[in-house]
Design a binder for these strands. Structure first.
Lengths: 347, 347
DNA sequence: CTGAAAGCGCTTACAG
DNA sequence: CTGAAAGCGCTTACAG
């Protein structure tokens, strides 16, 4: 009686009950090989009975590592309570689970593309490394990445892999995905394929998808027509406006490859509002496979990214970087998910 | 030279440079009123120059509070890489922002409805309190809540508010929302209104929506017909199966009130697959207003919950509880968002 | 308003 | 395999 204190137990309490020193308790609970099996078992048994949990703060302070990663979402024009891009949200589950599997906690935050949050998490020892997810103007963003690299911050970013941009970057095979999407439209007999999405260094992933679009057209012997391209960020409004603009200009088009599903969904709406049929008059293909894509009318054909693999790869790469391994940026393969928005053949 | 160390600066470094003691640095950086303005300014200036950040682990260890909250998502039947319920995902942004506003970090985790994670976060001092979000069998869940209460864990839960269930619970006015939805259908001339969703103590929120359904019918002098009710969890499959079952049974119905949007979306698909028109043959109303609801064909009428207010209320209530204030459970108001799935009048 | 002292609860060399 | 000692970087009484 009285041997089990009512305040939260510490390793000293366990040590006292087990008749060993406090450091031995610490070792036993971390499964150090330098503790005899008998002692270890006894200690772990007592710890369990007392419902003892190692104090994370003390442990992190002493060992100088937090076993925590920070996930930073950001979007460039951040309306006050903006919805996060659903694509990134879908990655959240996979990232969280992979962190748990590796014994890491995950801290999350939303950020404006401003302020000095970048290094804060690591400088304050709240996280050992950072995962960056977001769309935004890449030209604004690059400086910050460079700064992070200079500060020695551990981070990994979802973006356009395979370039010489600062820091570790994983991403999908955007160019290959764009090519697959457009080849599919070509096979279905489409010849005037529009592209919606800003294709510039400000949006490198969209630019890569655009390059894939060009690849497919060029291989098919079709000239890339600037009149069939419209700029746009990833939003339904962008898609709607782009289609309205093309319709107003009298531009002929029998298909749309949108740089993202949100754009595609907005585009479909504008097409249908104009009294045109999808896919008979205009076939539509998106990119991302967000949850809503399977629920639109008609369901949207799109380029799917393997979010489970992506989330796991981000966490794994970051942990490797933290542990001092050399990690290379790389691209993950993508697949075309064919649904009704492009399914009918026109040939 | 040499006065600025190359390792990460500590409060001792600042103290040395400012010519004061280390505790004074600590006070100045936390804006303690017991530091002279001049000293405070000088210290903060130096801290900024050195890019000094208070070590979170040391601070938390010493003060015995982490300034961190944990957000636990869970779903009962957890397929391996299940999508999280989009409704909860939508709340994430608001919760995160409110935490940031209050100076708290947010830790997130997905959990099975098993294991001993409940108190882990608090016992290990990783978080000062827990936000629980999830659907699941409430009957299984209640014991765990009771246990949490007994352990003195600080937590708040999104669920059915206003009952005498264990712990602090915030939620929407589910019953009022259900009533609004069904009144709307009645106003549009519907008379055989089906309800899809398990209405039992295993799913208290669905049950409350069902009670709202009954309220509206009863007020309109229409008897509640058990043949028009089908059980179902929150998934598209449930909705599809329920509609198929009703069609197969020959049951007449001219409207469906689904206990969630996911159910409603699955139900709409089954209705359309059967060659029936929405809303002319069957009007459909859901609950939640998930992002996909505005993108379905036709767009789904649904009961919207104020997610921004909900997220803020969860965080605020939890922080109040942590600080020892007495907090009461309460329900947030809901609104009916009328879209095309119910818009046509039949009267 | 400021400083000297203590201590939060661990982990990690270092000895034995 | 185990223990005594030190120390991670702060915050908080306690004095003055």
């Amino acid at each position: 009686m009285g041997s089990v204190p009512s305040r939260k137990p510490t390793s000293f309490d366990i040590a006292y009950l087990a008749g060993v020193s406090q450091p031995t308790v610490s070792r036993a609970l971390r499964n150090s090989p330098s503790v005899s099996p008998a002692t270890r078992e006894k200690i772990q048994q007592i710890a369990k009975e007392l419902n003892y949990k190692v104090d994370k703060n003390a442990s992190s302070l002493r060992s100088q590592q937090s076993n925590t990663l920070a996930l930073l979402f950001f979007e460039d024009p951040t309306p006050d309570d903006s919805h996060i891009n659903p694509f990134f949200l879908s990655m959240l589950g996979s990232i969280t689970r992979q962190c748990a599997r590796k014994g890491y906690d995950l801290l999350i935050s939303f950020q404006q593309l401003s302020g000095d949050w970048h290094t804060d998490y690591q400088d304050s020892h709240r996280a050992d490394g950072i995962i960056l997810l977001g769309y935004g103007d890449y030209e604004d963003y690059r400086d910050r990445l460079t700064h992070l690299v200079e500060q020695g911050t551990h981070f990994v970013r979802w973006g356009l892999a395979g370039t010489d941009e600062p820091g570790l970057t994983l991403g999908s095979d955007n160019r290959g995905g764009g090519k697959k999407a457009v080849q599919h439209l070509l096979e279905n007999g489409c010849r005037n394929i529009a592209f919606i999405g800003t294709a510039s260094s400000h949006a490198p992933e969209f630019e890569a998808r655009w390059l894939g679009y060009c690849d497919a057209l060029t291989e098919a012997g079709i000239a890339v027509d600037p009149a069939l391209q419209r700029d746009g960020i990833s939003s339904e409004e962008s898609g709607t406006e782009a289609v309205q603009s093309m319709l107003a200009s009298g531009q002929k088009f029998d298909a749309i490859f949108a740089a993202s599903d949100l754009i595609a969904i907005g585009a479909m709406r504008a097409v249908q509002d104009a009294g045109l049929k999808i896919p008979d008059d205009v076939a539509v293909v998106g990119f991302d496979d967000i949850p809503a894509s399977s629920m639109t009318a008609p369901p949207l054909t799109t380029v799917t990214q393997d979010l489970k693999a992506a989330g796991e790869a981000l966490v794994t790469a970051l942990l490797q970087q933290i542990s001092g391994e050399k990690v290379e940026s790389f691209a993950l393969p993508v697949n075309l998910m064919i649904r009704d928005s492009s399914a009918a053949s026109k040939a």
